[in-house]
Write a protein that binds this DNA or RNA. Structure first.
Length: 199
DNA sequence: TAGGCCATCTGGTCCT
DNA sequence: AGGACCAGATGGCCTA
C-alpha cells in the first residue's frame, strides 16, 4: 500500500507562494513549517484512515445480518453487492410485512373466508407469513441447480413466506449468484405435501 | 493481462 | 481553526 509521504519528498502547501504577502492569511500560513505541515498531513491521513475503517466495520456489521452464506470458504460480499442485497432484503421484508398486515386484517374481517380456503386443494397452505421452512435440507438441494444459472447458494437457512391470493404459498428467496457475485431474489412455491419447490 | 475491488492519500467543501 | 465528509487519483492484490 501507499506509504506516508516524507517531508522531503512532498513540498509544503503550494498556496503559500501564491499568497499576497500583505494578507493576514499569508502571515498565519507562513508560520507553518514544512515539518509541521508534514505532521498535520499525517494527522489528517490518520483521521481519514480511521473514518474509512469505521465505515468498513459498519459494512461488516451489515454483512453479518444479511441473509447469505457466511463462512471462511465463502467470498465476502463486495461493498456494492452488500448495499444492493441490503436494499433487496429490506424491500422483501417490507413486502412481507405489508402482506402479513393485510392477511391479519382479512382474518379479522367478519365473513372473510378461512385461511384453508385461500389455497388450492392439492397444495396445502404454509401456516403463516414470515415463518421459516421446515425441510430446508431438501429445499437447498432443490435450489442447487437453477435453470440458466450455474450455481446459486441458498442464503443461510432463511426463507420468508409470502402468501397472497394470486400466488398462494409463494416464497421469496434472497439469493447470491456466486458466479456473478450478485444478489438476486427468487420466487418459488412449496407444495407442503411433497415438500418440493416449484420455481 | 485486463478488470474488479480495495486501501490510502489528497485537496476541496461544509459545518461547528 | 479543526474536524467530518466527499470524490478523484493512484497503486496493490486477486481472479478469470
Amino acid at each position: 500500500m501507499n506509504s506516508e509521504s516524507s517531508p522531503s519528498s512532498r513540498a509544503s502547501s503550494p498556496d503559500i507562494e501564491d499568497m499576497d504577502s500583505s494578507s493576514s492569511k499569508f502571515k498565519i500560513k507562513k508560520q507553518v513549517t514544512e515539518e509541521e505541515m508534514y505532521h498535520l498531513r499525517l494527522k489528517i491521513n490518520g483521521r481519514e484512515r480511521k473514518r474509512m475503517h469505521d465505515l468498513n466495520l459498519a459494512m461488516d456489521g451489515l454483512r453479518e445480518v444479511m441473509p447469505y452464506a457466511h463462512g471462511p470458504s465463502v467470498r465476502k460480499l463486495s461493498k456494492i453487492a452488500t448495499l444492493l442485497l441490503a436494499r433487496n432484503y429490506i424491500l422483501m421484508l417490507t413486502s412481507s410485512l405489508d402482506e402479513m398486515k393485510r392477511l391479519v386484517g382479512e382474518i379479522y374481517t367478519p365473513g372473510a373466508p378461512s385461511p384453508r380456503e385461500w389455497f388450492p386443494t392439492d397444495c396445502a397452505p404454509v401456516p403463516a407469513a414470515g415463518l421459516r421452512l421446515p425441510a430446508l435440507g431438501r429445499t437447498a438441494v432443490s435450489l442447487h441447480h437453477l435453470p440458466g444459472s450455474a450455481e446459486v447458494r441458498l442464503f443461510k437457512q432463511r426463507c420468508f413466506v409470502q402468501t397472497s391470493h394470486t400466488l398462494p404459498g409463494c416464497f421469496l428467496f434472497p439469493l447470491l449468484d456466486t458466479d456473478a457475485n450478485k444478489a438476486i431474489t427468487l420466487s418459488a412455491s412449496l407444495c407442503q405435501s411433497c415438500q418440493t419447490l416449484k420455481l
